[in-house]
Nucleic acid binder design. Structure first.
Lengths: 342, 342
DNA sequence: CTGAAAGCGCTAACAC
DNA sequence: GTGTTAGCGCTTTCAG
């Protein structure tokens, strides 16, 4: 592969001049520039940004660490990050942790080695397990979706889970439910705790006694949604409504309920935190609280890039809390069941 | 940030010895290794893989160029790629082209500059627009999902679109349909052409005359699915069934049909190429032909990594054609409409 | 088993 | 406007 020196030789100039042309510096005589461009063309020269990154100490790359790109919420968020990164000439390396803190550490280590310019992190490690600051020594981090404690003052972009959960629970209560089961992610993940908090707040406000038996911390997955819903349904005094802590849990819950021969919403109400666009467009069934996932990704990427490019300026921590929205459809039984599709 | 020399100094050895320890070479005396490890620990040293890549001329990174990570088919495929890459210590850079050939060229250029070790490409450029071979000079490429002409003998992993489309069309014909509309992606994208080919094959085999008016090349998007379906419905002699060329087109078609006050499958049948898992789990409605997207990603990544690591060995082109599967549900009207959910 | 020297391709900082 | 020098952090020879 031709290097900058090959181009220089062919154009009869120095490597430095070629470098200037490549990087669009203006102080190059037009005819010299032409000669260089011609040489580049003829040689099929492609600049080696590895070398460039190496000397400049910046890679124009950010790492995005999420739990599962397969979850529509994260897919959309990732798209927001990617679009914004691209717009600013950054590339993004994707990492799926599958809610596994060990995988997360591995990925963070990898990203540190690769000297990415920044990291956007939806941590699986939870609030209680501070990340090895070692890894993130000097690289800017923006937290997304989930808080992490013990990491100093990091920027964060997230939805208001407490309020969202409150809205959803309140809606259920307004429909007459008193025994509401809730299934969320692992105990020390902030969204899980926040959603339970919002749930409790709504219950307390309505004077309904909290039954800890109905509050389940599991994993944000279809499998756990399925499994735990069955547990809930098998209780002596089962809930009349279930609050799926995220979209995957709700999908799992739906399957469990169906497998038990029950119907939604006739036999049991089901609501979900986070929507699934492809589903709701075809089949607007789930009553949900939805978060602006794409914007979350865009904002996080913007904050991060600003941090990367300003390094010196802004010192204070920035927190962006996006408001969720309640979308009432059918799964909580608020309207009579009717044909939606077909 | 500490370098290998800082570690060397602190451990009282040479940089070379540190390098050997880091890379797990065996010819280092255990006690020396200990000293080095201790120094690394104390300094919080993180190897700079940029420098390493630079001298080794390999980045342990692959580029994945797809059209839209937001499409569940590509999401799943991407997950297959990422899992496999990770397993082999490779990272992956994601690129969304949005079916825009110019964006594709930009991304490929970017990846070439970054000196990725290989590229997995679902091209938006279509069969007729050979990619600038300049960009891909020496870097291995595995095509995925779609063929590209004029690029020499590239490995490819794809589904059998001809057969899949044949199955789907045949199914519609068996149900009595004779006027079947089909909406696929852009004209020179191989999957679009193949799906039309399979469609025609089924019609011809059944002695049904092909009406070119019913064959529409558009974009693989919800928007075009919606728009073109409306066109089809407004025909003087509209189709009695619509074949959505991919999942997004089918979703758009569904919305268009609903907006026209029609029902699926009572008024019109609708089938789709590619499933949407989150949808079908909750609402198993669409009759589809589905492809093993995850496996596609895994196989493509494996082929690519083998290419990267063997460079010399295998010379012949490898083509992996995965078989699609017909899943009959309700949207084509094969069973009486009944409550599926709730 | 360990070290010294050279170089990967590029750019910053200075000369001219 | 353009060229020279030096060095980014690592690994590959090749010595010892």
């Amino acid at each position: 592969m031709p290097t900058i020196y090959d181009v220089a030789k062919r154009a009869g100039v120095s490597a430095m001049t070629v470098s200037r042309v490549i990087n669009g510096k203006k102080d190059v005589k037009p005819e010299t520039r032409e000669k260089v461009l011609k040489a580049i063309e003829e040689l099929g020269y492609v600049p080696n940004s590895l070398a460039r990154s190496f000397v400049l100490q910046k890679t124009k790359t950010i790492g995005l660490v999420i739990t599962d790109i397969t979850n529509p919420f994260f897919t959309t968020l990732a798209r927001g990050v990617e679009d914004t990164a691209m717009k600013n000439q950054f590339s993004v390396i994707f990492c799926n942790t599958d809610e596994d803190p060990e995988k997360e550490v591995l990925y963070l280590e990898l990203l540190a080695r690769k000297r990415v310019d920044g990291v956007i992190l939806a941590s699986a490690s939870g609030k209680r397990t501070p990340l090895k600051s070692i890894l993130l020594r000097n690289i800017p981090v923006v937290l997304i979706d989930r808080e992490v404690d013990g990491l100093g003052d990091l920027d964060i972009v997230k939805g208001d889970s407490i309020y969202g959960a409150y809205l959803l629970t309140k809606h259920l209560i307004d429909l007459g439910h008193k025994r509401i089961g809730i299934i969320v992610g692992s105990k020390n993940i902030s969204t899980a705790e926040d959603r339970v908090e919002g749930y409790k707040k709504a219950l307390i406000e309505s004077g309904i006694t909290i039954d800890e038996e109905l509050i389940r911390f599991a994993k944000y997955s279809r499998e756990d949604g399925y499994r735990v819903t069955k547990e809930l349904l098998n209780l002596e005094n089962p809930p009349t409504a279930i609050f799926g802590g995220n979209n995957f849990i709700a999908v799992g819950a739906m399957m469990a309920i169906r497998d038990c021969g029950l119907r939604v919403p006739e036999d049991i109400a089901l609501v979900s935190f986070d929507d699934i666009e492809s589903l709701s467009q075809v089949y607007p069934f789930f009553t949900v609280v939805t978060q602006p996932a794409y914007s979350m990704g865009v904002i996080a990427a913007e904050l991060l890039i600003r941090r990367i490019e300003d390094k010196d300026r802004v010192r204070e921590r920035r927190r962006v809390i996006l408001q969720p929205e309640l979308i009432i459809r059918e799964s909580a039984g608020e309207k009579l069941k009717e044909e939606v599709v077909g």
